[in-house]
Design a protein around this nucleic acid. Structure first.
Lengths: 218, 218
DNA sequence: AATAATTTTTAGACTTCCCTAAAAATTTAT
DNA sequence: ATAAATTTTTAGGGAAGTCTAAAAATTATT
């Protein structure tokens, strides 16, 4: 049995190490988990013991195949539940993370798959992040940060890099939502802020904001 | 914070002691929780410390008001989720218990109430058990065991006392489902088995079966 | 009412996951 | 290449929740 705590570590290692393939440092995990490096060492040993992770002292951790699948399954559940909360229970996109953090640990493959079916197999969660399928495969969406696009670029807002409640609420206030068409009109050299057209109106956004918005071009 | 384990104890004490009001013995709890009496003593002390239970050494446990409300909230969540699983995700009534045992511990009042709304405020779960409202009040349904009805009695099948998968599957096989109209045609003195009419057909059921079926008469 | 049987509690220990403090290894800087 | 800084691990310990075995209290029996 994989415990809730183990699942949380797997998630973090997966995220930090490009799907868990690259080795991740103890400190990086500790920071993400908001815990101490010594706790990470303990847990990582346990994950290795259970063949969920590859661990060599002082050289970081990566996930085994089983570890990666387990992590993907947790992420799948998290994102399906987020979709459920937003699209069926009318939560807003800034309220779902905490609850999904709990729901992602419910153990029942049948539940996950029936939920997926009930939601009609969504491909992305309410923040634009891809939902892996039963086999743990992600649909790779080609997207880029708005901050990295050239002036004149046109695209559709498809995801956020920062999904903190604060940022999401700011987007709500600015009337920026997933699916909106965006065009970069101007870039201010001084502070890299952008003038963009969105929703038939023209607004200014900071570099920080642009750096957290993904758009899909062409 | 009330832990998952504490919630499970509260549920059991609530069930065993007529809504947690009557004192319940350590052994009774241990049996229900499938654990040891010594573990129960430990936990019960902790519940008392947290003002969730009243505990006097060697004299059993009852719940405080807060303890009762907490227990009712867990039961509310359990039954709402069961309703969701059956009516939205198409689980059958014998498959939902295990999953609901996990879902009942998700902490989010908002989630519970939004789920309730999404389900259109169901009054009973898939086994006919009442779902308490936000305030922890149960709708008292007047029902009696089929085994205790007289020959000639007519009623509607509204709930099961035993909700084990085995019993529920047996009922499915016999085509007996909630809402069916039942009439007792005959009682066999030898073994208390009943001949009943249900679904426009006549079948025989054992005393054990009749003793686990609730019907609402008049 | 004394003894036997049962129930309940206490004592001590184990596991999981976390912590602090100190030691060891690695990396960076001089 | 050695010293300094940083990272990682080890050692030892704490809280929660469980267990077994033994002691204490209660209840039942004769």
């Amino acid at each position: 049995m994989v415990t809730q705590s183990e699942e949380n570590y797997l998630k973090v290692i997966y995220r930090l190490g490009k799907q868990g393939i690259e080795a991740v440092s103890t400190n990086a995990i500790a920071e993400q988990m908001e815990t101490r490096a010594s706790s990470v060492t303990d847990m990582v040993k346990k994950l290795a013991e259970k063949d969920l992770a590859n661990y060599v002292k002082y050289q970081g951790v990566s996930l085994t195949k089983v570890g990666r699948l387990t992590a993907a399954s947790v992420i799948r559940k998290h994102r399906l539940w987020e979709y459920f909360l937003v699209n069926k229970l009318n939560f807003s996109w800034d309220e779902v993370h905490e609850v999904a953090e709990q729901l992602e640990h419910i153990k029942s493959e049948k539940l996950t798959n029936k939920l997926d079916e009930f939601l009609e197999f969504p491909k992305v969660d309410p923040h634009g992040d891809p939902i892996p399928d039963k086999q743990g495969n992600f649909v790779k969406i080609s997207k880029m940060l708005l901050s990295e696009c050239k002036v004149g670029a046109i695209g559709v807002f498809v995801g956020v890099k920062d999904s903190s409640a604060l940022f999401l609420q700011y987007l709500d206030k600015q009337n920026i939502s997933l699916g909106n068409k965006i065009k970069i009109l101007q870039r201010e050299d001084y502070d890299q802020s952008l003038e963009i057209s969105i929703n038939a109106s023209v607004i200014n956004i900071s570099h920080q904001t642009a750096n957290n918005l993904y758009i899909q071009t062409n």
